[in-house]
Design a protein around this nucleic acid. Structure first.
Lengths: 204, 204, 204, 204
DNA sequence: CATTAATCGAGACGGTACGTCGGGTCTTTAC
DNA sequence: GTAAAGACCCGACGTACCGTCTCGATTAATG
């Protein structure tokens, strides 16, 4: 907001970064061992040794705390595989699948479904956790179009949804497993969707 | 299921269908006016006049009650449009989008995310609400293959996910609106995915 | 019961005396093993195999059932000891103390305190369980007066209370044990209260 | 008990005395207007505006709350009437009778009968409400013996029971009214029991 | 170095809802 | 036509967390 963020050195004890970290750590542990349903502010306070009011000073409710706890260890960008478009998508989808085909995957879906969709924290969570991969896909496609590898698609939003939605769909519905084959198939069909000449099968 | 469902007339007072219906009705009203977050067994009991223990006799928890309440008024099958494969998909997707592009859509996602994925009720809910449309799509595709309209696709599971996942993805993430254009685009891309000769878009 | 009970042959299933007895038996068992606090109509029904509505057909509430269950095995009249007034009282008080210095004693106090004091069953219980001994005492005193052993006391009601109240007082308050010494002391003081010439100590 | 009761200043928010008082006040009101049978924690919470968990933080169950509510407004010590022993007993018994010949009297009996006899609260209640008058009587008797007014009785426990039990007996059994005549008669007979020369009745 | 002020932990507060127990009534089938 | 079984509505139970609010204890920057 202000261009000069050198906050006027306020008097009194500054907020403790350690408390914040302890709460996040405890939240991650509870998520890992007991699940989202068992995570309560009370439990986080008890496990972390941080007082409840301190937790409420940092997060508005349990959902926001959980979101922040889940926003670490995200699948970093795929390492810019030199290959073509499908190659790039394949790499990213493998990373994504590996990152979400765990307990955390369902937790992400749960917290997303349970949170107030208008909250700032929820928006940030959606962008960082869900949509960032979609945006990465968009840039891969646009780069391929720029390079003449494919024609620029007209309905890119729907295509992006078709590529990235199935992962969360399987996560939520659980009708089929999520594994490397799944990422492979998605990448291949994405290629077919983006350009007929993409005659590059799943690794020959 | 069994051919002889004449259950042996059990002793004692039979469960009241009226109580069951009153509870479901109250649940639907609360969902419509206050949302899933405000729906509690207590509130359903108060609004319906049905006792709490009676509600617990019928459903194990609020999630199961909500699932059953949401399982009515589903988008019936598309009316067997005489046209080709894409025409059939288009009709179904329009119905689906119309059915879920409402408050109920997000509620379905929320209750699904929040429920015990192993519960029988959750499984029934997933099949009736989420997967039934997917299965309908499968039968459309297989009929088209049978008719020689398209080649039989190899990865039909992934294709089905790509067609039906985006609706729930947008529902959950909320990054883009859900409307007729969306159904249109999905049907068109589905056609492209299923057969090269699908030059039968809505645009010329 | 009687050999010539030619009841007008009423239609339908006759009321089962067995059900009544089974319920009373179950109530006694629960009183003995779990106490008055754990006795509920539900528990009696479960243990006895008698239906709840049947129990309610016989007793208005748990209190009345308990009262009837406790009204058996009461201390019979003392065997008319040939001796004087104090001798008679002593015999009766020993019987009383023996009958109430058990778990049942406290239960009698509890059910009496908890019951609706206006109910017919409560009145019957009070007369049979509490006041019958007091009335026996009255007749002993009046016989002694008749025989010239003592002067007829003026405040006989208060004297009767002073003789019979302490047992229930100790039962309720529990500040001192209830045993033979207690009966002995009561009888002796009762004699002193009733006539100065009653110079007959506790068995010389 | 400990001579240094400066309790170590505990951390955290201290219990609110106001909440405690509000709950006790509501309990007294319910006792007065609806009776012990209608008193539930829920009702106390609703009437007092105090939360249910707060009530449970202060008392283990309804019985203990009621006991504490009943422990106020006790019949203070009789004002040390200058007269002799019987005069002292008479004064105290009149106060006692006046204090218990009300609805509260039966409530005291009910709560005492219904409470766990081993609970600390029950013990305190018995001592403060029931036995304190008995102890006062003991000190009156011992003072009279010290002063040579009477011989020291041997069975003082039984005598004390005979003096103080009838009040609670009538309360519990309800066979006779409790009024000034009753107190009068008790005092007179107590005098007769304690010493032959107690020719100081209220009559002549 | 003492003061001061904000944050910390602890924990009680008024609440809401939970899931369960038992009360007393009513309905259905069996005897 | 009564008995059993058992579901009904209802009230209350005692507990878990919620999010807020005092408290005494800590801790840094200020004076």
């Amino acid at each position: 907001m202000s261009q000069d963020d050198t906050q006027p050195p306020r008097r009194g004890r500054p907020p403790s970064k350690a408390a914040r970290q302890k709460a996040l750590m405890a939240a991650r542990e509870i998520l890992a061992t007991q699940g989202f349903g068992r995570l309560s502010i009370e439990a986080v306070a008890a496990r972390s040794g941080v007082g409840k009011p301190t937790i409420y000073r940092h997060w508005a409710n349990a959902g926001e705390l959980v979101m922040e706890a889940l926003m670490s260890d995200l699948p970093g960008r795929a390492p810019a595989s030199g290959g073509g478009l499908v190659e790039g998508l394949r790499g990213q989808l493998h990373l994504l699948v590996a990152a979400f085909a765990t307990t955390r995957g369902r937790q992400v879906a749960m917290v997303l479904a349970a949170s107030d969709p208008e909250s700032e924290m929820t928006k940030a969570f959606r962008h960082r956790v869900i949509l960032s991969s979609r945006e990465h896909g968009r840039s891969l496609i646009e780069a391929a179009a720029q390079a003449g590898e494919i024609d620029r698609p007209q309905d890119i939003e729907i295509i992006l949804d078709m590529i990235y939605a199935p992962l969360f769909y399987r996560l939520l519905v659980g009708h089929l497993p999520i594994g490397p084959d799944f990422a492979e198939g998605l990448a291949e069909h994405a290629g077919r969707l983006l350009g007929g000449n993409a005659a590059e099968g799943p690794r020959a």
